[in-house]
Amino acid sequence: MKKLIVIGLAAMASAMLAGTSLAQESYQFAVVPKAMNNPFFDLARDGCMARAAELGNVECIYIGPVEHEAATQAQIIEDLITQGVDGLAISVSDTAAATTVINRAVEAGIAVITFDSDAADSQRTAYVGTNNKEFGTALGELLLQVKPEGGTYGMISGGAAAPNLAERVDGVREALAGSEWTEVPGSPTFSNDDSALGLQQMGDLKTANPEIGAIVPVGGWPMFAPDGWRNFVDGFKADVDSKALALVVADTLPVQLELLKEGYAHGLVGQRPYEMGVVVMDTLLAIKNGETVEEIIYTGLDRVTAENVDEFLN
Rank of each mutant, 00 (worst) to 15 (best):
M1V: 14
K2D: 10
V6G: 05
G8F: 07
G8K: 12
A15R: 12
G19L: 06
A30M: 07
F41C: 05
R45S: 08
M49P: 00
A52E: 03
Y62F: 15
P65D: 11
E69R: 13
D79H: 04
T82E: 14
D86A: 02
V92W: 08
S93I: 11
D94M: 02
A98K: 04
V101L: 11
A111D: 12
T114E: 07
R124I: 11
N132K: 09
A138N: 14
L139E: 09
L143I: 05
E149A: 13
G151W: 01
Y153N: 04
M155W: 06
S157Y: 01
S157Q: 04
D204G: 06
N209Y: 15
A214K: 10
V216C: 05
P222K: 14
F224V: 01
G228R: 13
R230W: 05
N231V: 09
F232Y: 15
G235P: 02
G235Y: 11
D241W: 12
A246Q: 07
V248T: 08
T252Q: 06
P254F: 03
L257N: 02
E262F: 07
A265P: 07
Q271R: 15
M281A: 08
M281N: 05
T283A: 14
N289W: 13
G290W: 03
I296L: 10
T305W: 05
